[in-house]
């Protein structure tokens, strides 16, 4: 009994010593703290910048409705855009933006998927050695160069082909098509490469042909990834300002056809931004256009997340 007690006491003393040793700060723990502090600081700054940007655009964007008392409905459905005279109908630009975005995505997707299948399934070697660098190059070209080529080549070509000025939705679509093609292609390639090899083997071992395997197994399992790629392409097209502005003609009127001058939200912003005075209706109206762009980019983001979630569910992960 005595002895046990004694032992206990000795242990207590020892564990006290360990307690202190295991809790004291060392160089390692201090470094941890500094590292963590720095990264929290960075995150904090970024959050602050993003939040104030969102707040800035939103507050400026809704001033049209709160200060100038333009009705939201009129803004969204009105077709007359003349801010100097108090006419704030943004529909022509909204239609223009959606038209060029969808048209570019619809034209680009088949090309992108076809190229991606070639690069991953038909000729992986040539794909890696020839096509990959070409596509990466295309991604890196600044948009002003695309716009310049559009202005110098596409617009005259359209003028020649269908008459008119050559400026318009179709020229913008063509330029955007070339611009989003590499985006959609690279992301589609990634999603095709991510399809588990064993799906392909299973399909081939069942006597399916290469084409059946590609179309019914590989493309199907890559569908969420391909949709994501298309949405990223659309987001890029929707947000592209400079190149579009150079070829679309910048007439803030409802587009009657694909070959007459039109405008998009972005092109109207870049065109109008210099001539307005802060706090006036014309200036606020431009901020409202910017707000639509912001909301659309949030929407594209949400869509991508939604697809990723659905894809995970479908693949049972």
């Amino acid at each position: 009994m005595e002895q046990t007690n004694f032992q206990l006491k000795k242990q207590d003393a020892q564990s006290h010593e360990w307690d202190a040793r295991l809790h004291r700060a060392t160089r390692a723990t201090r470094k941890d703290w500094i590292g963590r502090g720095i990264s929290y600081l960075c995150i904090g700054v970024i959050i602050l910048v993003v939040a104030s940007m969102l707040w800035f655009i939103t507050s400026k964007g809704i001033a049209t409705f709160t200060q100038n008392h333009v009705s939201l409905w009129k803004f969204l459905s009105g077709t007359n855009w003349a801010p100097d005279q108090g006419n704030i109908g943004a529909l022509p630009m909204i239609v223009g933006s959606f038209a060029v975005t969808f048209a570019a995505a619809i034209v680009a997707t088949p090309f992108a998927v076809g190229t991606a299948i070639f690069m991953t399934e038909i000729s992986p070697n040539k794909g890696r050695k020839v096509l990959q660098p070409v596509i990466e190059l295309l991604v890196g070209i600044p948009s002003v160069v695309y716009g310049f080529i559009g202005l110098a080549v596409v617009v005259p070509f359209m003028r020649h082909l269908v008459g008119g000025s050559g400026f318009g939705i179709i020229s913008a679509t063509f330029v955007l098509f070339v611009m989003v093609l590499p985006t959609i292609t690279t992301m589609t390639v990634d999603s095709l490469r991510a399809v588990p090899r064993h799906y392909k083997e299973a399909s081939l071992a069942l006597g399916a042909t290469r084409w059946q395997t590609v179309s019914r197994v590989i493309l199907r399992s890559a569908t969420p990834g391909i949709l994501t790629a298309v949405i990223f392409g659309m987001a890029r097209a929707f947000g592209e300002a400079l190149a579009v502005q150079m070829v679309i003609g910048n007439a803030a009127i409802m587009p009657k056809n694909l070959i007459s001058p039109a405008s998009t939200l972005t092109s109207q912003l870049t065109t109008g931004i210099g001539d307005t005075i802060d706090g006036t209706l014309p200036n606020n109206a431009l901020w409202s256009l910017a707000l639509i762009l912001l909301l659309m980019s949030l929407f594209f983001n949400a869509l991508v997340r939604f697809i990723a979630k659905r894809g995970q569910l479908k693949n049972g992960r």
Partner: peptide
């Protein structure tokens, strides 16, 4: 491959 079927090491059903 129709006549000579194959089953792999890792179960590989399609999704």
């Amino acid at each position: 491959r129709r006549h000579i079927g194959m089953v792999f090491q890792r179960p590989n059903p399609f999704a």
